[in-house]
Amino acid sequence: MKLIQISIFLENKKGRLLEVCSLLGENKINLRALTVAESDNFGVLRLVVDKPQEATTILKAKGFVANLTEIVAVEVPDKPGGLAEVLRILSKHNINVEYMYGFLERASTRALLVFRFDNPDTAIEVLKANKIRVVGQKDMRAL
């Protein structure tokens, strides 16, 4: 039920994000979600794509430092308080969210969010037990 996220080290330099995106585009790799976390001089680009292994191989061949992280995509009710409800459940079970971001989703009534947990397996169990839908790789392809 876990998804694979690619994290890429980028210096804060003009055109670096463009280079990554062009590279993926040229290789027909589709972006599902992305976010950039930044520090003073560098940033970490985090991506969810349809073909993570292939994308990583391509990026590394071009000299990027990249690694793979397991993340959890959660379907959050698209209504006021929807996210709060999910977070409340996680908090109650002492599950820490390292970071989270949203999917680049097509028109739909669902809101899909990506969560990075220290322990994704426990998080998935808790979420499922509380009837929160966790999206797997299969559902991803359907997106």
Binding site: Q5, S7, F9, S39, V65, N67
Partner: peptide, 15 residues
């Protein structure tokens, strides 16, 4: 230079 060995997806670890 950041090598794969020391790279992390978490900013706080890199800092």
């Amino acid at each position: 230079e950041v090598e794969e060995k020391i790279f992390s997806d978490e900013i706080k670890k890199l800092r």
